[in-house]
């Protein structure tokens, strides 16, 4: 099955590959998927004091569509507030990358990764407030 041009572009030139310091207070890390299932995504966000996402990084083990979905997710969350980032839906990713039905799970995983990274930063903030 041929890949869409956008998937190929993200695969060849992935945006925001790398890692942020997962122990930093203003960094949220989401790791979703499992090697046995053929997909693992790690997505990290760095937020400022106003909960705006100022940086995002990813690494992905998975097919080209999984790599493209997570690359696109980092692009989209950058500059958004946490609340805005939570409105990103997997269907938006499917549409943007023209993913075929067998690859929809890649977009679901990318949405899960955004949510997991946000949950991590919120946990850190709540923990800091409570302590």
């Amino acid at each position: 099955m041929p890949y869409s041009d956008k998937v190929v572009d993200h695969y060849r030139n992935p945006r925001n590959v790398g890692a942020l310091d997962k122990n930093a207070k203003n960094v949220g890390t989401g790791v979703v998927g499992a090697p046995e299932c053929g997909d693992v995504m790690k997505l990290q966000i760095q937020v400022d004091e106003n909960d705006r996402i100022v940086d995002a990084k990813f690494k992905t083990f998975g097919c080209g569509s999984a790599i493209a979905s997570s690359s696109l997710a980092t692009e989209w969350v950058k500059g958004k507030t946490i609340d805005e980032a939570l409105t990103i839906k997997n269907t938006d990713i499917v549409e943007e990358l023209a993913l075929p039905p067998v690859k929809i799970h890649c977009s679901v995983l990318a949405e899960d990764a955004i949510r997991a990274a946000i949950a991590d930063i919120q946990k850190k903030k709540n923990g800091a407030a409570g302590g």
């Binding site: 979703v32 998927g33 499992a34 992905t60």
Partner: peptide, 23 residues
């Protein structure tokens, strides 16, 4: 491999087979 979170974990000395994955 530069793009792989599994490779990164292995480089950090994490045993991937012992990680609890949230699939």
């Amino acid at each position: 491999r530069e793009l792989s979170p599994l490779y990164e974990m292995a480089q950090e000395g994490i045993d991937i087979s012992k990680v609890q994955w949230k699939a």
